[in-house]
């Protein structure tokens, strides 16, 4: 290992592993919303990346406005920006479900095309409203800088923040789906729509809220995204294929599978990036996923359902 000392190698290993964890957090945040929309409801939302971009732009707007009108508030704006990102993405998702998705539940392939059209329109709206250039948020002090446990290890604080947020959101989704009354209704509806309707669950409302919630989580992902990198009109499309693969690879209806697959994909990618170019690492990762999916089409973890 050309000229590295043992401690240096250790540090590289830790930092590379941490880079993988950051990627894991971003992928998982993106995939959680999709796990509800695609995994639970079976809707292919190609515009999911754009809902993330909505969150990112909201946060950027928030930071610009705060810096302009209340510079003293700049250290605290972030949680509010996140909340507003969630609400805006939730609201738009609610409307999109009402106007478009609910007419297409029986035609999943057509949903794919319609939401692709939606994503094109949203991209152009972003471009017209915010310009084609990438923008970034002014980060609060406490997100800048890095954490240095030893001389040679350097872990950025924003990465730690995103990881913490991911854990929080994941637990929230778990609680929502598996412990709350709403989650019970969502799971009942996805497992047997007719029976769920027969016992008095308003399945249409459940659909709408689930879809909107998935979009809202994408909005939070977008807000978190601004702490790591800048945002452009087409940012969302860069991640959409990866996100779908995470959900499919994990096993569509399994939330645990989503977490496991986001972790393995992110780690595989960042470890390989150390040995070869980024594009080859990506190609190899994607090929491996497809290879495994061909052997196990139902994904890593699947719930056995009688069909």
């Amino acid at each position: 290992m050309g000229g590295y000392t043992l401690t240096e190698l250790g540090s590289i290993f830790v930092m590379q592993g941490f880079a993988g964890l950051s990627l894991f957090s971003v992928l998982l945040l993106m995939a959680l919303g999709l796990a509800i929309i695609f995994g639970q409801m079976g809707v292919i939302n190609m515009a999911h990346g754009e809902f993330m971009t909505i969150g990112a732009y909201t946060t950027v707007m928030f930071s610009v406005l705060t810096a302009k009108f209340a510079p003293g508030f700049i250290d605290y704006y972030f949680p509010f920006a996140m909340l507003v990102s969630f609400l805006i993405a939730f609201g738009i998702g609610y409307f999109v479900e009402f106007a478009m998705i609910r007419h297409l539940y029986k035609r999943p392939l057509d949903t794919l095309l319609a939401t692709w059209g939606l994503s094109l329109i949203m991209q152009q709206i972003f471009r017209s409203a915010f310009g084609a250039r990438e923008v970034s948020a002014t980060l609060p002090e406490w997100l800048l800088g890095s954490f240095q446990p030893t001389e040679s290890i350097d872990i950025p604080l924003n990465g730690i923040f995103v990881m913490g947020l991911t854990v929080f959101v994941t637990l929230g989704v778990f609680y929502f789906l598996f412990k709350s009354r709403w989650g019970l209704r969502v799971r009942a509806t996805t497992q047997n729509r007719i029976m769920a309707g027969a016992v008095g669950i308003n399945t249409r409302l459940v659909d709408r809220v689930s879809f909107a919630l998935g979009c809202g989580i994408a909005g939070i992902a977008g807000a978190a995204f601004t702490t790591i990198t800048s945002t452009g009109p087409t940012t969302g499309t860069l991640y959409i294929v990866d996100t779908f693969l995470v959900v499919v690879f994990g096993g569509a209806a399994s939330l645990f599978g989503t977490i496991a697959s986001a972790f393995s994909i992110a780690q595989a990618q960042s470890i390989m990036e150390f040995f070869m170019t980024g594009s080859m690492a990506k190609v190899l990762t994607l090929l491996t996923i497809i290879g495994i999916l061909m052997l196990r089409p139902e994904g890593l973890f699947s719930i056995k359902v009688r069909k």
Binding site: D110, A114, G117, L120
Partner: peptide, 19 residues
Amino acid sequence: ELWLFLMGGLFIAVVMFFP
């Protein structure tokens, strides 16, 4: 500017109104 709006609208319209 208009093209992506039209293209997107075309996707949605074809799927929803003229399958």
